[in-house]
């Protein structure tokens, strides 16, 4: 069954489009010309094994690693722009490792998330508490003392504070117990349904990712080896054997 939310035809054209995207860390070339799109209001899943280059793709979008080829965001080429400038264009990023400001409180983490906002962010704080009631209880707690699951929630909430038009999520399930992962994904479905944010979701947990995505790409050592609507990818024999494990 394809998730009704993800397949709702609310999408416009692509908000993010990569064409022949290459990226490298110094001499180490990691991405070898990949193409993908994230549709406005859509959820694109980027799947692949360890070291395939998923995190690198997100870093390239945010100008954290140098890239060539084209990265078009909202019709504008954004390759190698300053990371903070890309954030200012309302691209939220839940990075690899969660990027928590460990020394600061939960509140301060959220307020930093809203740094680029010129308007009041108090209503957004309330909105985040609605999604993540656990964060409300820990509002004044030092973020470094949160559990892994709570930190992941905080990271997502922090990225949402920017009011993202495009949200990049790097393995939100990483290192968490299945129960917590399910909780987080339930919340994410809620967010997808209400916020209408366009999302690029990186996951190793393919079945989970495909349950919320409408488009999916399979990355292997820096190349896209398969792409298509999530529902189709889910049915694919080889993907099932290699990534879904049934």
């Amino acid at each position: 069954m394809v998730d009704p939310v993800a397949s709702t035809p609310i999408q416009g054209g692509p908000i993010l489009e990569a064409k022949g995207l290459h990226a490298a860390y110094g001499q180490v070339r990691v991405l070898h010309g990949i193409d993908f799109v994230v549709n406005t209001g859509g959820v694109t899943a980027l799947l692949g094994a360890n070291g395939a280059g998923k995190t690198t793709t997100l870093r390239a979008i945010c100008g954290m690693v140098r890239s060539t080829g084209d990265l078009m965001y909202d019709g504008k080429r954004i390759n190698n722009m300053a990371t903070e400038a890309i954030a200012a264009m309302r691209v939220g990023h839940v990075p690899d490792g969660r990027g928590t400001f460990m020394e600061l409180s939960v509140e301060e983490n959220l307020r930093l998330g809203g740094y680029t906002r010129k308007d009041s962010i108090e209503p957004d704080l309330e909105r985040m508490f609605a999604y993540f009631p656990k964060l409300k209880d820990r509002f004044r707690q030092q973020a470094g003392t949160l559990s892994g699951g709570e930190q992941q929630m905080l990271a997502i909430a922090r990225a949402l504070m920017i009011r993202p038009r495009l949200l990049l999520l790097d393995e939100p399930s990483f290192g968490l117990a299945p129960l917590i992962v399910r909780e987080i994904f339930e919340i994410m479905k809620q967010i997808i349904a209400t916020e209408r944010t366009s999302i690029l979701l990186v996951e190793q947990n393919a079945s989970l990712a495909l349950s919320v995505a409408d488009m999916a790409y399979l990355l292997e050592t820096g190349k896209i080896v398969m792409s298509g609507p999530a529902a189709e990818i889910r049915q694919d024999e080889s993907v099932r054997r290699a990534y879904l494990g049934y």
């Binding site: 954290m64 990371t83 903070e84 954030a87 990027g99 930093l112 809203g114 990225a159 504070m161």
Partner: peptide, 8 residues
């Protein structure tokens, strides 16, 4: 790193 990601 996280600071840049939130636009600082």
């Amino acid at each position: 790193v996280s600071s840049r990601l939130v636009g600082i």
